[in-house]
Simulated assay, not measured.
Amino acid sequence: MTDRKPCKVCNFTRQKSYGLVVPSLDELKIKGGEFLGFSPSELVTVVLEDDGTVVEDDVYFLCLPLNTKFMLLREKDTWSPGRRIDGGTAWMARDSMILETDAVDSSSVAAPWWNLAQQLKQDLASIILMSEADLQALVDAPCPELASALGLQEKKAKDLQETLQRVLDRREEERQSKELLQLYINTVNKENRQQQNPSHHSQGGAGDIDVLEEVEVDSACGFMSRTLRVLKGKTSPETRLSTEELQMIVTKGVEAMEEVLGWDRVRTSALLQACETELTRRLQQVQAVQSIRSNTRPSNPRQSSQKSTEEAKE
Rank of each mutant, 00 (worst) to 15 (best):
L73R: 02
D169T: 04
E314R: 12
M257T: 02
L212K: 02
R74S: 07
M224G: 14
V46Y: 07
S225Q: 10
Y60K: 12
P6D: 05
G82T: 14
I292C: 06
E162T: 07
N295V: 03
V188I: 14
H201T: 11
D95A: 11
N197A: 05
K178N: 08
A157N: 01
G233I: 07
I30C: 04
T187M: 11
V230A: 08
R281N: 10
G151N: 03
M248W: 09
G82K: 12
D208Y: 00
E145S: 09
I249Q: 01
P298H: 04
L150I: 03
W79Q: 03
M1Q: 07
L272I: 13
V286W: 15
P198D: 00
S299G: 13
Q203T: 04
P198H: 00
G88W: 12
D169M: 04
S269K: 08
L99P: 09
K178V: 06
L36N: 09
L168A: 03
T277G: 05
E314Q: 13
D95L: 09
R166T: 06
R265G: 10
L73T: 07
L72E: 05
I98T: 15
G52V: 10
K234G: 02
L72R: 02
Q195I: 06
A111G: 08
N67E: 12
P81W: 06
T2E: 13
L48W: 04
D140T: 06
V289P: 00
G87M: 10
E42K: 11
S202N: 01
I85P: 00
V104E: 13
E145K: 06
E49P: 06
T227K: 06
G33C: 04
K156E: 10
G52I: 12
S96V: 14
T187I: 09
A270D: 14
S225V: 14
E172D: 10
V109K: 14
K121I: 05
T243K: 13
P81M: 09
D3R: 04
N67A: 09
L160V: 03
P81K: 07
D95E: 13
R297E: 14
G19S: 11
H201S: 05
S177N: 08
G52T: 11
P198E: 00
L228Q: 10
R83M: 13
E278Y: 05
